[in-house]
C-alpha cells in the first residue's frame, strides 16, 4: 500500500467533536469507498479487516483520526453501522475489527479481499490522549470492546516515552475469544504490562481465570488515567475498583456503545440523557456518565 508518509503527520487530538476528514463532505450521508486489502481471523466470529480508501483524495481518512473514534461502515444493500477504528493513526493500514452480531456485521464479514465497503467518519471524540500524556495509563477491556482499546495501545506503544507506567488488562469469555493475541509480545516489548484473563478456561490455557478486577488486584496499578471498554457490568466493577485505588472520576474514560444510525448527532438513536454518544462520546469520563451506565 502506497501512501504519502508526509500526510500522516500529526495525530488529531482527542476531544474534537467530530472528525472532518478530507474527502468526506461534512454532514453528507454519502460514504467514501474503501477496498478490503487484508482479512485476519481473530476468533471464530470476529475478523480484522484492513481497508484502503479507493480515491486518492480520501486517503487522509485512513490516518486522520484519533484512538477511540469510530466509522460508519456500509455494506450497500444491507445498511450502515458504527464500528470502532481498531488501528492506530500511527500505523497503516486502517483497520476495523468486526464481530458477528446481525445482518450488517455479517455482511461486513462476508466481504473478501478486493471487495468494497462504504465508510463515513471518523466520528466521535476519541480518547483524550493529550491529557493522558505524562501520566500512568491503565487500559481495561472486556469482550469485543477490546478493538477500540487496541488503537489506543498501539498509539501509546508508538509514542511510549510520553507516558509513564502503562498497563493493559483484558478479559474474554474463553481463550478462543481473545483478540490480537499475536500482538501482546510487542506491547510487552514496548514496556507495557499486559494481564490477560478468561472466564472459562480449556485444557490449553495456562493463564489467569476470573474477572478483570481480579487481575487489577494482582497488578495493583498506580493511579493515573484509565481507558475502559466492555460490557456495562465489567465497566461498573472496574471503575469502582479503580476509584478505590486512588484513580479519580474525571480521569476514568469509558467508551460507550449505543444504537446508532447517523453518527453526526441528528438521528437521536444514541441519546443517553442529554448526551449524544456519537458526537459527545463515545468516550465519556466517569464523572459525566457514572450514574447513566
Amino acid at each position: 500500500m502506497k501512501m504519502d508518509r508526509s500526510k500522516m503527520g500529526t495525530v488529531a487530538e482527542g476531544g474534537t467533536r467530530t472528525g472532518r476528514a478530507a474527502g468526506v463532505k461534512p454532514g453528507s450521508y454519502l460514504p467514501i469507498q474503501a477496498e478490503v486489502v487484508d482479512i485476519d481471523v481473530e476468533s471464530s466470529n470476529t475478523y480484522l479487516l484492513s481497508l484502503r480508501p479507493m480515491d486518492e483524495e480520501d486517503e487522509l481518512v485512513a490516518v486522520n483520526y484519533s484512538p477511540g473514534q469510530f466509522l460508519m461502515v456500509s455494506v450497500f444493500g444491507l445498511g450502515e453501522c458504527p464500528i470502532s477504528i481498531a488501528s492506530s493513526p500511527t500505523r497503516e493500514p486502517l483497520q476495523i475489527c468486526v464481530r458477528e452480531a446481525g445482518r450488517i456485521t455479517q455482511g461486513i464479514m462476508a466481504a473478501r479481499v478486493g471487495d468494497v465497503l462504504g465508510i463515513r467518519g471518523p466520528f466521535g471524540n476519541g480518547f483524550p490522549v493529550g491529557s493522558m500524556r505524562g501520566k500512568n495509563v491503565l487500559i481495561a477491556g472486556g469482550g469485543s470492546g477490546f478493538a477500540t482499546l487496541r488503537s489506543l495501545i498501539n498509539y501509546i506503544a508508538d509514542d511510549r516515552e510520553k507516558f509513564k507506567e502503562v498497563t493493559v488488562v483484558y478479559g474474554a469469555r474463553t481463550p478462543q475469544d481473545l483478540y490480537f493475541t499475536s500482538e501482546y509480545g510487542s506491547w510487552q516489548a514496548a514496556k507495557i504490562e499486559v494481564g490477560i484473563t478468561v472466564d472459562m478456561m480449556d485444557a490449553s490455557w495456562k493463564g489467569n481465570v476470573g474477572l478483570v478486577t481480579s487481575l487489577l488486584a494482582e497488578i495493583d496499578p498506580s493511579p493515573g488515567a484509565a481507558a475502559l471498554c466492555g460490557p456495562p457490568m465489567m465497566i461498573r466493577a472496574v471503575a469502582k475498583d479503580l476509584l478505590g485505588r486512588g484513580f479519580i472520576e474525571p480521569e476514568i474514560y469509558i467508551s460507550l456503545e449505543r444504537h446508532m444510525k447517523c453518527g453526526v448527532g441528528k438521528c437521536e438513536h444514541c441519546t443517553m440523557g442529554r448526551y449524544h454518544v456519537c458526537t459527545d462520546g463515545p468516550i465519556f469520563s466517569y464523572d459525566v456518565v457514572g450514574d447513566l451506565i
Binding site: 450521508y29 456500509s74 444493500g77 444491507l78 445498511g79 447517523c262 441528528k266 438521528c267 437521536e268 438513536h269
Partner: peptide, 20 residues
Amino acid sequence: HCFSVLDQGVPDGERLRCRD
C-alpha cells in the same frame, strides 16, 4: 426529527431515510 436509515436493493438500490 429522529430518523432511521436503511438500504433497499442489491446490488443497486437506494439508501432511504425514514422518520422514526
